[in-house]
Structures are given as C-alpha cells and as structure tokens.
Nucleic acid binder design. Structure first.
Lengths: 175, 175
DNA sequence: CACCGTCGGTTCAGTCATTGAACCCATGGC
DNA sequence: GCCATGGGTTCAATGACTGAACCGACGGTG
C-alpha cells in the first residue's frame, strides 16, 4: 500500500490481504494473470497502465509469491510472469468482485464464467449448478458476452474474444 | 479511483467494481460497516484513518448506494452510516479476502466467522459445513481468535472482542 | 555493416491523492 | 461562562501515479 506504509493498526486478515493486493492496478494484474496473460507487453497494452507502475506491481507481486518470474527464452533473454498457487487462490476474490460489479454496475453481460466440462454458467458461489460441484480454477471457461466490443484495438483483448480456460497461456498474435 | 479518473479502457465488471471499492481504505470502511460500525467517530478511531479521507469515502460510498446516511437524532443533529443491501452483497468479497489473508499472510487466527445457529466455523465457500447451507450475512457470528490483542486501545476494537452478529449495530461504550 | 524494430525495462518532471494537524460550529452539561 | 462531544473542513507537506522520453540487448533486413 505504502501511503503511510500500510494499514498499521489493523489486526485483520482482510487488511493484511489488502496490503498485498489493495493498491491501484494490482488486482487487475492478477486478473490478467489468471486469464493467461504472462508477458510484460501484454499486460501493458491490455491494462493501459503506465510502464513504471506495471514494473512496480510485477515486482511486488513476485516478491509476495503471487506471480513467478520465469525465463522462457535465452536469446534474447525474455521473462514471463506466471501465476502461482497463491495467486490462483485469489480467484474467489476476483470472482465475487465480478459478480458484484455485474449485479450492480453493468447493464450488459461482458463475460461469462462457465464450467468447461458442461458449459453451464457458474453460480454465485463458484459452483456448477448442473454438476453440483465447486469448479476448480483450471476448469473455468471464460467466454465473451454481448456487451463486449467485438473489435478491440489491442491483441490481448482480441485473443480474449475466443472462449478459453483460465490459467492457460494466452497466445496474442499481433495480427 | 480517480488517479487518471478510472480504469478507462477496461470492459470488465471487476474493473467497474474496483472503481467503486478499489480505493485505499474503502473496503475497510465497508468491512467495519458490516461489523456494525455506524458512526463517524467509531470509523475514525477503529481505522486510524485521516478525517478528510474518511469523509470522502463515506460520501462516495453513500453516493454509490453502498451506505445510507441516516439521521438518528435531531438535537444535536447526528447521522449514522448504515450498510445497504448493495453493501451487504460485498460480504463474499470481504470473506474471500479474509480467507486468503488468513491462509497466506497471518500465522495466528485473528477472528472466526461462524454460523450463529450452530456455532460451526464457516467453510471456504461461506457455507456452514454442519448444516450444509450457505449462511446469510445476518446469521454470521464473528468471534475473536487467539491472535487478537486482548486489551485494545479503542472502544470499537474492545466492543469487537465479544462475539456478535454481522450487521447488528455495534455499541461501543467509551469506558 | 548500418539501420530499424521489438521486448522489457528505467528515469524524470508534473499532477493528484493521502496524511496529520489545526481549525470550526452546533449543541449539551455543569 | 466554560468545556466537551460529534462531525466535519482546510491546509501544507509528502508521496504515489501518469505519460513521455530514453535505454540496452538482441534479431532481421538490405
């Protein structure tokens, strides 16, 4: 957080969590990482975030163990940021935020989260109403809704127009 | 949010939600409101937040329909801020944040959330494992854990040392 | 070899939010 | 008359965010 350091006096696991993921942009970076975004430039164009802020967020998220920086080619040296187990466990937070935002703030469906096995839309508690089970993150299928711009400018948004599973690396061809 | 306005380009209900509750302190104000805090001064001492920021947060949360400002006595005029249905629906977000913070960031249990009817601690999905039902917010009992300071300085923290239901107005006698 | 483009950054000046302290005002109690 | 309480506002200083510019390592092209 770091305006006046942190939520100093708060004995509360919510406050502790917000010290890590409560800064501006941070949860959107985690969202993108869950969506399969891994490369600096993809975060950059998809979020429209200043480079300095992105660098700072990637660094602290890596230090906190939410992302892992991984060399994926040697020449030229290139790193990607992959979400860790600790980051994956933030999915319920993002899912519940999405539910709240959808119910109260948007008038048109932007995305659906579905159970990949059967295509049913997830219920409010992250369960599959058809199968009656809680759906693991890797089995969540994200599909576009009617409210989404059908021809977005950046390649990451274009790649997200196709249904895909969470966590699966996103291939954004710049075409 | 309002550093550079908002998350302008994001077509995403998570981003919309964060525009409303993503600013520093905002989710902690909502947490306190769910815990039963209603009065300006109680928020102030419990959060240790600058007065100007608290006033700003209470105003925007009221404008967004998360809190409702209500006159509770006429002379001298006194208002309280009561959480609305829209605010209550943020409970899953705060609960999942608390679960994540507890799992990854704290080494000692600070608070328990229990089903008031049977005393069982809530499961990861907000359900009562004993009764097999999702527990409504008003039936969540919040009880202190071993990691909590047994003799806190401010009256709100002292009032929260006793088990109480969420939403129920908190009586913080200044004693 | 010269030149250009890409990726993943850092640096920097300007703007805007946050902080903490001080001040304010209406009312009530002594 | 005087102080206390609740609920604020104002203000200077600090520090985070923004956007643009710059940079270095490489690869590809002519």
């Amino acid at each position: 957080m770091a305006l006046g350091k942190d939520y100093a006096t708060q004995e509360c696991s919510i406050a502790r969590a917000l010290e890590v993921v409560g800064e501006r942009w941070t949860l959107l970076v985690v969202r993108d990482a869950l969506y399969g975004v891994r490369r600096y430039n993809d975060f950059l164009v998809h979020l429209g975030i200043p480079r300095a802020v992105l660098s700072a967020r990637l660094r602290t998220l890596t230090e906190e163990g939410v992302l892992e920086k991984r060399r994926y080619q040697e020449s030229p040296p290139r790193d990607e940021y992959v979400i860790t187990e600790r980051g994956i466990e933030l999915w319920p937070v993002l899912r519940t935020l999405a539910v709240w935002g959808r119910e109260h703030l948007t008038d048109c469906r932007l995305r659906y989260f579905r159970h990949a096995d059967c295509g049913t839309e997830l219920g409010s508690y992250g369960e599959c109403p058809a199968c009656g089970t809680v759906v693991p993150v890797a089995d969540v299928l994200i599909t576009p809704g009617p409210g989404l711009d059908p021809d977005p400018a950046d390649p990451v948004s274009r790649a997200l127009l196709k249904p895909k599973r969470l966590l699966e690396s996103l291939e954004a061809d710049p075409a």
